[in-house]
Amino acid sequence: MPFIQLIKANTRMEFIEMKRYLPNTLSMIATVYIIFLGMLLGINVIGDPAQAEANIQHLIVNYIFWYLTLMTLSNIGFTITMEATRGTLEQLYMSPLGMWKILLSRLIGYIALHGVIVIGLLYLSMATANQWLYLKPDITLTILLITLVGIVGVGFMIAGASVIFKQIQAFMQILQFILAALAFVPLSVAPILILAPFVKGVDMIRHVMIQGYSWTDFTAMDYTALIANSLLYLLIGIFFYLKCEKIAMSRGLLGNY
């Protein structure tokens, strides 16, 4: 299967790059660990003790989502910018499998590696703080993965903009505030946000972690909304990216930086 080989090659590439840029990887690990630890220990001190556990759960769910979303979204745009700077972007476009599949496999590798690190760090920080959150890995991970599909779709939209404009850092800075708002505002406060990417997923995981929801506590409508939202954003994202790619090719912008 060519696509499986593509995923393997790009996951290995992400892993090698993490090893080659070790100081950067270590500082990322240390930062996330300190943040988790800070949240687990700090909320007990700062917040209302009666509400402490719910606060921690709420904050950590939001943080993990915000972190993974931001990493995923900035990674795909950053990949395009980096490849264009290095001079390898056009070489990637020479693959008969198509650039969007290369980007997708890069993201899969990136999410897999970072996902393992973040979840590992979460458990490590829980052990360090001796504060065990109410995690249900089966349902939490499933919802998380489906939600990430939609995030990847938004990532493709950013990739499309990067193919044409190359420099999108300023936009990314604004985006992280928008993402924070989406991750932290509960769906019950603004139901319209169900149409936004990943909000339904965060909301469902909040219910699992804070209210102890299980598979059967969600309605078929909840699952349908989650899957439909993710698939729709993925499809729109890929369509948008391919359109941008076409524009870049007709304007001769691929090799430009």
Partner: peptide, 10 residues
């Protein structure tokens, strides 16, 4: 190895 993988080869 990477560029071979990018063309779908193991």
């Amino acid at each position: 190895e990477y560029f071979a993988g990018n063309r779908g080869k193991s």
